[in-house]
Nucleic acid binder design. Structure first.
Lengths: 232, 232, 232, 232
DNA sequence: AATGAATGAGAATTCATTCAT
DNA sequence: TATGAATGAATTCTCATTCAT
């Protein structure tokens, strides 16, 4: 990706320039189109034709770059993680007060899922498929978010300063955060139909605050018995 | 059909015997097969042929009962909810101590999702599709779980006896429980690949306990701030 | 048909009586339904299902009476001719003045085609198919209209009284009449679209008169040269 | 395509050589095959497979050019009119003596219908279907034959020179001519079966002459009554 | 005798993928 | 390099026809 960015940035030709004869740019357009199409329509629902058209590329072109539909899907899935990781780079919770950091984390994660709906959709698609593709991606681990490190740092500082319990695993904690943010966004439509819950901006705002409180209670030191009113 | 049921049930011979000329039975078999196929392969990935074969029915039969693939999908989605609701009937938390009840609820929900994987898959499929079908299902509300009533009862009793905060909305509380149970089960494969977390029996057992604690902390009276878990 | 009529008339049960257990009545209903369906949708477009439904008969019933779709089509085609012949029985031109009779014949034929559209449609369907079925109908000749005899009589009387030429073949004359009446009715839709001619009641009335004149001119004695103004 | 045309035309080898990668040629072959198939088998009876095979083209090709069976049918119907109109261009009656011209017109029309049987068959098919397609053809009027103009010219000149009545509408006159030529050709098979009339070369020759006489008598000035052949 | 249940054999249409220029 | 032309292999859906009660 760094290399890619370099290509693009160095060229100096603005995006208005003729589309032809720029392999890297074509590839990027294909990737973006594929991400959109696969996340919108799912693995089977996605149409190669649609991707080629959106990317303004001929189908043979596309095949020469990505081999086949499967290859394109894999590339799109990787791209989804790459973009998410890039997005996570924007979060700076390391410098904050641990308690504030938890709130930031929640708000960030929720916003992340809401503003990049293709990510949840790609995850769902991939999991529906039994993780076939991601398991085959050699570099899946590299994809792991540096978020975990930041979370680890926050938890540790919180524990040291006595505001958090010790021994909380950052990955497991992240799973909790992600769970709480993922479910309502992912299941927006069925929640609406079955429970009549509207997952709108207001609800999300409230959700962020409620979740922050939930997490802080979870992290608070002391057992359940003594937990009541522990904080000054 | 009653006679048939008798025949079938009494026979003792498993379904090897050709089941013939029994419309209701055929319909049931088709529905079961459709639920399996749609949840396994998704809306587009599902194959009518496969459903017919699994149901031991010819394709025209299937079409005469359900109209088209879309109609079959809708029937399968409804069937998923029906079966889940039936399953929920087995849960009896109403009689327990509220604190115990929360633990029961978590264990039950987690087990529910794990043991009926087609449910999560159907939900994901439907949400990937923007909820198109469930929105059109006139009786979607009827599908709503009676679980909510039970949860409401538990929360109320807990509040009265002073072990829980008051004002927690049962639907929102259920969303929290569902979120925490859903995410790891639904995203089992990507979690494994990206974070190297194995969502196995041990992990699930631990998860249930940890989640129970989390929820009790969330419900505990007093607390960190003013956020009370009631909807906006 | 006579036998059939007998069955029906003799029974005494009005048509409100239960439909069951009356083979002749069922057969008649099927025939009527088949005639409607085949003439409406054509040989391939016709649906056995639709015929059975319209006739309020089960499909196996229908098959037991008529063998297969082909048999049913043949029966419907014959029925079309039978009904047309019956209709022609109503025409009484034998007693009239030959000149008037020609006018009657034209009006009758035109009205016949317009009011029994299924006839033209069946003829077109059968001819599109190369006459396969009618050729195989052993009694096709019997179907021949007694109209021809009547026409022959009129032509003869006209010739004898000197108002018509002699030597006009009644069949050929009927072909002319039929041609002129058939074409506009059969091709109503394309005429409308291509030539913007509306084949409506007004047009048909005018057509009848114009055709009568055309035929009388055709029948008038004398050659072309002397024909002008021959009549007093 | 121009180059291609050259290749094809110049080769001298008949269509045995695989004609490849020539979209226009493929389209033409498909159209010809569709016209044949639809006119032979009717709208429902026609088989896409058969058309593809006759055109030496794969089915997807055909679909990419014409959308679906309906689109192909429409194209075939239009093609039928286009070819008929082209054929009519060959008729030159404008220069002849009006009386001779009428004979020419009859002979031409009859020959036209006999030698291009697909035209009558397409018309019948379309009218059986209620004119659904031709009504939707935006340019149906453009399809109108320039024949009408020529006929108008002949009638006018005949009227001026006193051999014809005045006030005959060319369209209505054409309808008469077409009627007389269409019916025996279209209904060849049923006429043969029911009236034992053989619509063969001899009969047609006689028919042409008889029809010419009929028309001239119809057009002759003076006459039987007041009906003048002009529209209502 | 009458019919609901069932199906084999197609038919239209789609789509990932490759060819030939 | 780039792409319009082309297709094999499904896939959904239909329909005449028969079975079994």
């Amino acid at each position: 990706m760094t290399a890619r960015d370099h290509d693009t940035a160095a060229e100096g030709t603005p995006s208005v320039a003729p589309i032809r004869r720029d392999a890297a740019a074509s590839k990027r357009r294909i990737l973006a189109a594929a991400l959109k199409e696969f996340s919108d329509k799912g693995r089977e629902g996605a149409r190669i034709e649609a991707i080629a058209q959106r990317a303004q590329v001929s189908k043979p072109m596309l095949y020469s770059y990505f081999g086949d539909k499967e290859g394109l899907y894999e590339a799109a899935l990787r791209e989804a993680y790459v973009q998410i990781r890039e997005g996570e780079g924007e979060l700076q919770i390391a410098s904050a007060d641990p308690v504030v950091a938890v709130g930031d984390l929640v708000r960030f994660t929720l916003h992340h899922f809401v503003s990049k709906p293709w990510f949840i959709r790609m995850l769902n698609t991939e999991n529906l498929d039994g993780g076939r593709t991601i398991r085959a991606m050699a570099d899946a681990a590299e994809i792991q978010s540096r978020l975990i490190a930041q979370i680890g740092d926050v938890l540790e500082r919180g524990a040291k300063s006595g505001v958090f319990r010790a021994g909380i695993d950052p990955v497991e904690f992240y799973i909790i955060v992600a769970s709480l943010c993922y479910f309502p966004v992912s299941n927006k439509h069925t929640l609406r139909a079955v429970f009549d819950v509207p997952i709108d901006a207001d609800w999300l705002e409230w959700k962020a605050e409620d979740t922050a409180e939930l997490l802080l209670r979870y992290l608070a030191p002391g057992g359940l018995g003594e937990n009541k009113g522990d904080r000054p």
